[in-house]
Amino acid sequence: MSDNWIFVLAQLQANRTPSVLATVIDDRGSTPRDSGTKMVVTADRQFCTVGGGHLEFQCARIAREMLGETRPGCRTERFSLGARLGQCCGGVTTVLFEPVIVALPHIALFGAGHVGKALVRILAGLPCDVSWVDSRGDQFPPQVDEHIKVIIDDPLDALDAVPADSYFIVMTHDHQLDFKLIEQILKRGEYRYCGLIGSATKRRRFCYRLGERGIGPDALARLRCPIGLEEVKGKMPAEIAVAIAGEIISRYNRLAALATDNTAACLEKRAG
């Protein structure tokens, strides 16, 4: 891979590899690299350089700590090269760390019916990873996109393996199975989105039963049912799928915007 950081980031994005961009934003005195120098760090590799030695070691360590965080935001670190790191140049360097390629949104879709099939066709073209779960293996198409992971298993058993902070979409062929899945997802609590296909009547019935099983009002308020953007009307599978995909896109774009705002806030704070 090239030592050009722009090319490196483009390659990592194409390969869906999370990384952190480390940029020298201030240099005072004798320092190994000037402001603007960049390094890209992944979980197991690093590209380009901010000067080598203990400084680079510490920058790589911080970046990998960020990669392990659920919701990484930007951060700055000031390094006194002589006093803190024991480097002979003895100047002061400030480094900005930006999670410019964070882990892609993970969507867990339960149900391979008509709407599920239509939805997967849309999700296949989006920057996300998808686990598609149904116990009925004959319901899946013979071929799916490479980042759609087909899981032929009992959905309740498969639920435990879904990563934290996923987007859950429940639309199985069985209302009772839908209920059990929603109950477990809400009890688990580690999700960015929990959507259930169905009507407002289905929601009222489910919420009443879930409340009897100890699910609190805050958790019930997070349940999306009916699912999908209200502005997108229609009852055809493709129309429902578009509405659901639109809602998911709006959710993860909102989170991406928050991350961008955090980066801007870091830079403003540094400039001030």
Rank of each mutant, 00 (worst) to 15 (best):
N4C: 11
A60C: 13
E69C: 00
T37E: 11
E212N: 02
D218K: 06
A238N: 11
G82D: 09
A118Y: 08
Y208N: 03
G234S: 12
G195N: 02
E98N: 00
M236H: 15
R84P: 00
N262H: 10
P163H: 09
Y191C: 11
V133R: 08
S250G: 10
K269I: 04
S166F: 12
H147G: 00
E98V: 02
D3G: 03
R188L: 02
L156A: 02
F97Y: 14
G29M: 14
K269S: 10
H173P: 02
P72L: 11
R224T: 08
I148Y: 13
N262I: 12
V50F: 06
E69N: 12
A43P: 00
I152D: 03
Y208V: 05
L156S: 09
W5C: 09
T49R: 02
R209A: 01
K117L: 14
W5H: 10
A265S: 12
E230D: 14
I248G: 04
H175Q: 09
V232I: 15
C88L: 06
I148V: 13
E77I: 07
Q176M: 04
N253G: 06
V20A: 08
L177V: 11
I227F: 15
N15R: 14
G68Y: 13
A241S: 15
G211P: 01
K202N: 02
A63G: 06
I244L: 09
I169N: 01
D27R: 11
A245I: 03
T42Q: 08
C128I: 09
T201D: 10
A22F: 12
L104Q: 12
L159W: 07
A158I: 04
C207N: 14
